[in-house]
Amino acid sequence: MTDITNTPAAEHEAQLGDYFALLKPRVMQLVVFTALVGMLAAPHSVHPVVGFASILFVAIGAGASGALNMWWDADIDAVMRRTAKRPIPAGKVQPGEALAIGVALSGLSVMMLALSANLLAAGMLLFTILFYAVLYSMWLKRATPQNIVIGGAAGAFPPVIGWIIATGSFSVEAWLMFALIFMWTPPHFWALALFMRSDYDDANVPMLTVTHGRPATRRHIIAYTVLLAVLAVGTGFTAIGGYIYLTAAVILNALFLLGAYRIWQRDETDAEADNYLVERKFFRLSLYYLFLHFGAILIEATLRPYGLGGW
């Protein structure tokens, strides 16, 4: 028999797209956008080539941590409906390949960011990768219902890294952008956990919905949303804010608070009756919420040189 089609190598040979999927492209989009806003909102300008390269290396670093997360979580990804089609559980990429790609790209991205931007930015990228891949994926995710709260910090670092790329130092504004994503992550994921009913139960991931029940999760969503609203509107009065940001923040937070209030007022019977319509709407709004807040910061920063943005 000379036909080689049925050999395992031929069946499992990954395509470039499968490797790309390991890098969690959708998370990467958010990372690129928030890091870019952090960089452009900073008071120092960056050469376009240096800026482009640096953001690219941050994106590669984020992708690398995504690959490491998929390598570690392949067992639970296979159980959850939402993640069962990821490259490793789908059998397209071998776990060893994901690990190799994750480690290699982590090293490359940190090294290159040190060369293109500065050591502090590279150090923060390394810290973020380790935070997400080791602290969150390997430890907290399966250990505590606060997994999303602490793990959310990993997703919140990109604007800080962007700011450091431009300035070489930390500042209050950078940490405000960090806090915005940090406080946004729990209500965003808890709303998802409410309507992706059985996924986390099946995978034995201690989400708040599993450990403390759904009514407690609803209370947590409203509590975090109130704190988030105070923070988001308050940011409007700082150096990165302005009329445009403040207007956007007031409208978005009013809508977000309303959504969280509705979630809080419902019980499981109401939710099942309309197939979690309110929770789904809140989740969709949360995506626009973050994008528009950072978009408004970007607009303020873009207009500032013309004397229009900011206060």
Partner: peptide, 21 residues
């Protein structure tokens, strides 16, 4: 059954290699 010079697996690999290149 003869071995064809260009099997489907080769064209797939080629695509991947070109991409990486």
């Amino acid at each position: 059954m003869s071995i064809r010079a260009e099997h489907e697996i080769h064209s797939r690999r080629k695509g991947r290699n070109v991409g990486i290149g």
